[in-house]
Every structure is written in structure tokens, then in C-alpha cells.
Amino acid sequence: MNLRRLPLTREIGLGVLVYLYVPVVVLIVYSFNANRTATVWTEFSLDWYRKILANPSIREATWNSLVLAAAAGIGSTLLALAAALGTKTRFRGRGLVEAVLNAPLILPEVVVAVATLMLFVAIGVELGMAAMIPAHIAFCIPFAFLPIKARLDGMNPSLEEAAQDLYANRLITFRRVTLPLLWPGILAGFTLAFVTSLDDFLTSFFLSGPGSTTLPVYIFSAIRAGITPEINAISTIMLIVSVALVVTSFLFGRMRR
């Protein structure tokens, strides 16, 4: 008898994996169905993909999402990199600083989104990209911060010390030693921030203006208007892009130099 294996745990475990993946698989399968009534399978077809590629509002929403995710990813990674370097050594209040930086992880997104909406309306920021980019940067900071921080904590401090012993100044030490060692963490952080922004629905829902709809906001309003196979096709593309990016980020995180 294997003592570690308790009865039923394997059955429940496999059942949960099925539960986690079946709905997504059903969604993907239906996106390749030729029939419009999403319940009856007729034959394999790429029609819905052709349709969404030809749809100008989907193309525009995709472009907006990519621009937003790139801006939020770059902005939050730069801020998080600086913050991670600044919190490397112990100081009074470091715990509080890190708690503030990670606060967007725990605060309910709907609350932060409507609060930001009120701020922007109060100070006269026009809704749209100009409102979404700063808001996305703010909530992406912890996603970029945590992997960079983890990499930095795992770094051997004697390498930097050795560089300084060899008369490298602070800038050269950073460029030639710290940055190359930190690079996998930075890439992992950027990718996670990018995915988080790309997948975000709520914040964009409240802050997008006319003409700046993102893909998740487009999907939500399309679902509200009625379920169509086109939604299955866009959703499938979104799923595949996120999974590909997250796997990339894991590979970055494991990279060794």
C-alpha cells in the first residue's frame, strides 16, 4: 500500500483537471464548427476565423489591446525594475512600500476601476487610451515587480562586489553585471504584465472611450448582444495568445546565465 496515496484523491484530481479544461475545449471546438447554431456539430470550418479577420471593429479592438498592453507592459516593468532595485537592501518601511506596490493584487478591481474613473472625470482626463494606459500601468506593477524581485533576491551579491573591486563604477556594474543577470526576471515580469493588461476587462470597460474599445470589452458587449460563433473564434485566439505568452514567461523565469 502506498501510504501517500489516499483513496479517492486521484479520482478527484483527474476530475478537477477535466472540469478545468472541458469548458475551454468545448469553446475551442465550437469555434471550428461550420454551423451557426453553436449546439449542433456539422463540419470543420475556418469560416468564423475568416469573418473576424475581415471585421474592422475587431481589427481596431485588437490593435488597441496590443498598444495598451505594450505601453502598460513597458511602463510597469520600468517602474517595477527601479522599485525592485530600490528595495533590495533592508530599510525602515520596506514592508510598507512593498505592500503598497502589491496592493492592486488584493483590492477588488471593480472598486479601483470606478474610483479611477471618478478621479479622471474630476481632473478632466478624457476617457480612452490616455486614461487606460496609466490605470493599466498601475495595476500591472505587482505582476512585473514580483518576478524581478525574485530574480534579484536569488542573485549572488558577491558578483556585484567583485565588479566594484575591479574598479567598475556603479553604472558599469549595473550595465555589465546586474542587468545581464536580471534580464530573465525582467523579461518574465514584462510578459506577465503584458498578459495581465491584454486580458483585462473591468478597468478598460470603465475607462475606454468611443473608438478605444479593447478586445475583452468588445467580446463582453458582443456576448451581451447574443452568442455567436465569431465570439468563440476570438476567445480561442485570446486563450492561445495568453497561454503562449505565459509559457514563454515561465521559460524566461527558468533561464540561467
Binding site: 517602474l79 517595477a80 527601479a82 522599485a83 532595485l85 530600490g86 528595495t87 512600500v97 503598497v100 506596490l101 496592493a103 492592486p104 483590492l107 472598486v111 479601483v112 474610483a115 479611477t116 471618478m118 478621479l119 496609466p134 490605470a135 500601468i137 498601475a138 495595476f139 506593477i141 515587480f145
Partner: peptide, 17 residues
């Protein structure tokens, strides 16, 4: 180093709340 990120979160999350 810490300031810019801290100010961003405080201005875009703390102040709105």
C-alpha cells in the same frame, strides 16, 4: 528608485479610493 512606482500606485489607486 522606489519613488516613481510608489507615486504611480498612490496617485492611481490611493487617491482615487
Amino acid at each position: 528608485l522606489v519613488g516613481p512606482a510608489l507615486v504611480t500606485v498612490l496617485v492611481l489607486v490611493g487617491v482615487p479610493l
